[in-house]
Every structure is written in structure tokens, then in C-alpha cells.
Nucleic acid binder design. Structure first.
Lengths: 208, 208
DNA sequence: GTCTATAGCCGGATAGAC
DNA sequence: GTCTATCCGGCTATAGAC
């Protein structure tokens, strides 16, 4: 495995766990077993490393998500909201084929990107991958035409919150489920539990 | 205003905005216009300052929330989920009387406490204020008895995610709502939009 | 491309004068 | 209780040998 990849893999683990400002280049290069200077040589700066890390996932996820959502838009007259959200499951879970714990790492990174670092990553994502949001909005509109684009904006945001926050603490949740309820769960189980929740949330009656 | 309070107020602003690891004691004492050494004199360490900050809110919020939820438990035979979640509104908004932007600051701090600092604050909160969770679980159970305690556990967590994540980015959301939809919103408006969403989510049919 | 070494700055924390 | 001064380690980033 080359140095660049070793760095990306180590950074992914640490950033997902401790956030960006909570992780130092020294920790990353130590886990990656490469020289401290290698990060700056290969990526230029810590910020660029973070972007490269998100790009590694988003370049895989975005097309697969857009395909999955387009499929619903083209082949279903009036999809259910559960169908729309289920369109996320396979693309998200396929990130586990890219890397061990890819799904939860990616969603945790996404969570940190919204709170850490004064939103520069949020800017980066919305400006580089707008197709996801457009397709999702269109699919929700088709499933629930009475929702205005403003309603959809809010409920999409709430849904992001649910997913991202849940994934940020998946490990803790799986532990609790095991201790308190004797259940052995994995990321896929957690995702399956979220879908009815967010589908019902987005499908809530409109109070005017 | 005494030094201790000046520090708490400055820390609240900065921590809410930039997270714990993203904020330095130097920034805090500079905004507070007190000496750098004052934090360690008054609080002992940065970690203890964080705890003191959360305590300042939780000591007000916890009893008011417990009263509000107990009220529903005692005086309503079968409350609706909207009623249960509405029980949070007044206690949360009353934090604005404590401090300017108290509600959103507190919820942002709560958000950071779940992702920053390896969960030590999460531990602190759940171990020091268990009454909130117990009362909330009881109220949800009364509103929707078919939910098992396991179902409630998951859906409570999803709800936390929605609230905390939304509040972490309230400022950005209010900006977008203003630019894209010409709406002038405040925290109370955002909270009112969340309630139907989470009530519907928690009330989603149970897939078995 | 990878290393050592180090610059230069910032972090939390503390000693000790007042 | 508040200040200055400082310790000491960690931080990102870079220069320069190999």
C-alpha cells in the first residue's frame, strides 16, 4: 500500500472518531507509519487532506446515489417516501466494500464536516455535489407533491441530522443495544431502523 | 459582572460556534477580557470549564423539563406525540431568558458534546440528569403504548439527532431561509418546524 | 519520494509577585 | 483574585540531505 493511501486510511479512522481539530498530523502519520512530512508532501496541508478524504467517498457515492434516485424518478409514477429513502441504503452500504466500516466512517466524517472547521467542508460538498440534493428533492416532491420546496428543504435537513448524528454514535448505540436489549446489530440494522422514522417525518402532515 | 461569569459567557459563545477542541483558552480569555490564568484559577482546567458551562444550563433545564413532562403524565390519559414533544418547547425557549441565544447555544453545545472530546460530556450528562430520559420515555410510552422500550430507545436517539444537528446549524439555516425563501425566522420558528417531523417519526408504524 | 531536523507558533497549565 | 512571565510540549509547515 502506498504512502498516500496509508495516510488517507489512518486519517479516516482518526477524523471520524475525534473530529478534524481533535486530530493532529502527528497522530495520523504515526498510525499510518509514515513520516510526519509526508502529509504535507502528498496533500499540501491538513485542509487539503480532509478534502481528499471526502472526495474519495463522494466520488463513489454521488454517481451511485444519483443513479438510484433517477431510477425512481423515471420508473415510478408515485413512489412512497420509504422507497425514496430506501434508495440511499444500497449506495451507502456499498461504501463498506471500499473500506472496512466505510459507511459509518463516511457518515461520521459528514457529521464532523457540518460542525467542525466553520463549515468549509459543508461549502465544499454542496458546491461540488449538487446533483444529490437536486435528485433527492425531485424524488421527494414526486412522492409527496403537496410539500413545498421550502417544506422539503427543512425536512431534508432534519433527515440529514438524524442520519449523521446517529452514525456519529453508531458504535455507542450498538453497544447499548447489546447490553440493554441483548441485540447484536451492525450498521445495516441501524440504517433499516432509521428509514421508517425519516420517511414518517418527511411525510408528516403539513401544518399551515 | 464577575470574572467567572465573564469567562462562562465567552466560553459559551466560542464553544457553541467552534467546538471544544476548536477553541483555545486564549481566545476565551481574550473575548472575556480577563487574564489567561483566570480560567485555571476559577475552574481548574478546560475540561472543568466545559462541565460548569453545561451545568449552568442543565440545572435550569432539567427540573423545568421534568415538571413539564410529569404534567403530561399525570393529567393526560393518552397524550398525542405532538403534545409530548411540545413539552420541550417552553423549557428550551426559556433558556433565552437566561442568556441571549441561550436556546441555540445550549443545543449547539449539546451537539458538540456528543461528537467532540470522545464522549466524556455525554457520560457526564446521562449520569447527572437521568430524570429527563426516564420521564420522556414514560411520556412516549403513554402516547404510543405499542412501542417497546427498544423502539423508544432508537426513536428517542433519532430525535436527539434531529434536534441537535438542526440547532448546530441554525444560523446557516436561518440565512438560507432568508435568501432562498424570503423568510425571517428565529429559533422558535425552527423548533416549531421540527415538532411535526419528530412526532411523525416517533409515531411511525412499527415494522416487524 | 522519503527522511531528519527544525522553524515558528500556539496549546494548556503554573509559579510567584502584587 | 489578578497579574506577568514562563515552562514545556504539541502544532503545522518547510528546508534540505539523501
Amino acid at each position: 500500500m502506498d504512502t498516500k493511501t496509508r495516510i488517507l486510511n489512518a486519517a479516516e479512522l482518526l477524523f471520524a472518531d475525534k473530529g478534524f481539530s481533535g486530530t493532529s498530523l502527528r497522530e495520523i502519520t504515526s498510525i499510518a507509519e509514515v513520516n510526519l512530512a509526508a502529509v504535507n508532501y502528498h496533500f499540501g496541508s491538513k485542509k487539503e487532506l480532509i478534502k481528499a478524504l471526502m472526495k474519495r467517498y463522494l466520488d463513489v457515492l454521488a454517481p451511485s446515489l444519483i443513479t438510484s434516485l433517477s431510477d425512481i424518478l423515471e420508473n415510478t409514477d408515485k413512489p412512497s417516501l420509504e422507497q425514496v429513502f430506501s434508495a440511499f441504503v444500497e449506495p451507502l452500504l456499498s461504501l463498506n466494500k471500499l473500506h472496512e466500516n466505510g459507511t459509518s466512517n463516511f457518515l461520521q466524517l459528514l457529521g464532523h464536516s457540518y460542525t467542525d472547521s466553520q463549515g468549509f467542508l459543508r461549502w465544499f460538498i454542496t458546491n461540488n455535489y449538487p446533483g444529490i440534493i437536486d435528485n433527492f428533492t425531485a424524488a421527494v416532491h414526486k412522492a409527496y407533491p403537496e410539500l413545498t420546496s421550502e417544506d422539503i428543504f427543512w425536512r431534508l435537513h432534519f433527515t440529514m441530522g438524524t442520519a449523521v448524528f446517529t452514525m456519529s454514535s453508531t458504535e455507542a448505540l450498538i453497544d447499548i443495544a447489546s447490553n440493554d436489549f441483548g441485540l447484536k446489530l451492525d450498521v445495516a440494522d441501524v440504517i433499516k431502523r432509521i428509514i421508517p422514522y425519516v420517511a414518517a417525518g418527511v411525510g408528516a402532515p403539513i401544518a399551515r
